[in-house]
Design a protein around this nucleic acid. Structure first.
Length: 160
DNA sequence: GCCAACGTTGGC
DNA sequence: GCCAACGTTGGC
């Protein structure tokens, strides 16, 4: 009998003014490719580790009230970020060659909003306990995609 | 391969 | 808008 694999858990940041959860919900099938990531650590996670069916928190960054606003799911695994090849694109990178792409993305589908937003301020209260290993609540963290353990995921959801 | 300079992220 | 923290670049 085939056993269903457990999903991995992630958190992905985006600026609501640029692409927020409302933008995702407005997309056809509420699905969009997560382009524009130009950081190697985040790239590696999308290219190598994110699997179809994985669950992702949608985090709003660089805004009045940063925090987690919804849940998404991975619907397409890592493939080359074509926006890096197009000089008209904001995230154009001449060093990314279509024959040897430097940047990758995944496709993400909206699952649901949280019943209420869980703010960074609130999450920081657990920086020394339940979330002590989570880079999100550590000062100076700039990683736009990060993995969460199942325990961290469950804990955050329990705050909802 | 070191490291200073620079650019970007993102909370505040 | 400020600025700390961090990643990347490039001279040496």
């Amino acid at each position: 009998m085939k056993k269903k694999e457990k999903p991995n858990y992630w958190l992905m940041k985006s600026e609501p003014d640029v692409f927020g959860i409302d933008h995702l919900i407005a997309m056809p099938k509420k699905t969009e490719h997560w382009d524009g990531v130009r950081n190697y650590q985040a790239r590696n996670m999308m290219r190598d580790e994110m699997k179809k069916g994985d669950l992702v928190f949608f985090y709003h960054s660089n805004c009045k009230q940063p925090g987690i606003v919804g849940i998404m799911t991975v619907v397409k695994e890592g493939y080359p970020d074509h926006t890096a090849f197009d000089s008209n694109e904001k995230y154009y990178d001449p060093k990314s060659d279509p024959d040897n792409p430097r940047w990758y993305m995944v496709d993400i589908r909206h699952k649901r909003r949280l019943k209420r937003n869980i703010t960074l301020e609130e999450l920081k209260e657990f920086a020394d306990t339940e979330l002590k290993d989570c880079p999100l609540v550590r000062r100076g963290n700039r990683l736009s995609i990060m993995p969460l353990s199942e325990a961290q995921w469950d804990f955050i959801l329990s705050l909802e």
